[in-house]
């Protein structure tokens, strides 16, 4: 059957049957991740306003910092797209360069997020303060952990790409990391609007 056979044309990552299966599997995994984050968003929404005697979000959220974080992550998604584009062109060097830039931007995002968390805790809003802040930290923290995982995973991939070059396997792995990275970006857009923007005005 044609679906089983290995192709000789088309993007490297889609050429082998195994590659196609892995990518489909990862799409389904992203479906599961959507369910996971939806649950976290729903919990956050339910806990909204339940701040007890801890500070309310409007007192703490600061637009400039969140904008910088958003800018970093969105740009990293863009550079990640360029990295995949370089991969498709067959340029290992281009891929590695843009991937490295992506990771630096991701690290920048994480740095700001950690700074933000520490700052809030100083102001008396921590995981233990109230239901609202529990929801906040778990939602954003889970996203942050995903970003950390993505960075570590991509770092391992850089090593493998340098060892083996562009093969159907390495390019498939790279493509999947790319999907993951864009997905985290999408989640952040929801966090940005439904947590920060709404939290600042309500």
């Amino acid at each position: 059957m044609s679906a089983d056979t290995d192709l000789t044309t088309g993007p490297l990552e889609y050429r082998s049957h195994e590659g196609r299966m892995n990518i489909l599997g990862f799409w389904i995994f992203i479906g599961a991740e959507v369910a996971l984050f939806s649950t976290l968003f729903a919990t956050y929404a339910v806990m909204f306003g339940r701040t007890g005697d801890s500070p309310v979000p409007a007192e703490l959220f600061e637009l400039p910092m969140v904008l910088i974080m958003t800018f970093l992550l969105l740009t990293s998604s863009f550079t990640c797209g360029i990295a995949i584009h370089e991969m498709r062109r067959g340029s290992l060097k281009g891929l590695l360069t843009w991937l490295a830039i992506t990771l630096v931007l991701g690290l920048g995002f994480l740095g700001f997020e950690i700074y933000e968390f520490v700052h809030y805790i100083h102001e008396g809003a921590s995981l233990q303060s109230s239901a609202f802040w529990s929801g906040f930290f778990l939602l954003t923290g889970t996203h942050g952990l995903h970003v950390l995982l993505g960075i570590s995973w991509a770092t391992l991939l850089i090593v493998q790409l340098r060892q083996r070059g562009l093969t159907p396997v390495t390019s498939r792995k790279m493509f999947i990391v790319g999907l993951y990275w864009h997905f985290l970006d999408v989640i952040w857009i929801f966090i940005f609007t439904s947590v920060y923007l709404i939290g600042m005005v309500v």
């Binding site: 339910v46 806990m47 339940r50 701040t51 995981l127 233990q128 239901a131 529990s134 929801g135 778990l138």
Partner: peptide
């Protein structure tokens, strides 16, 4: 997290639900 790290999702205190 509620039980081990003291958050307030399902607790009676801290406005949990």
């Amino acid at each position: 997290v509620d039980r081990i790290f003291g958050s307030h999702f399902f607790t009676l205190t801290g406005e949990g639900m």
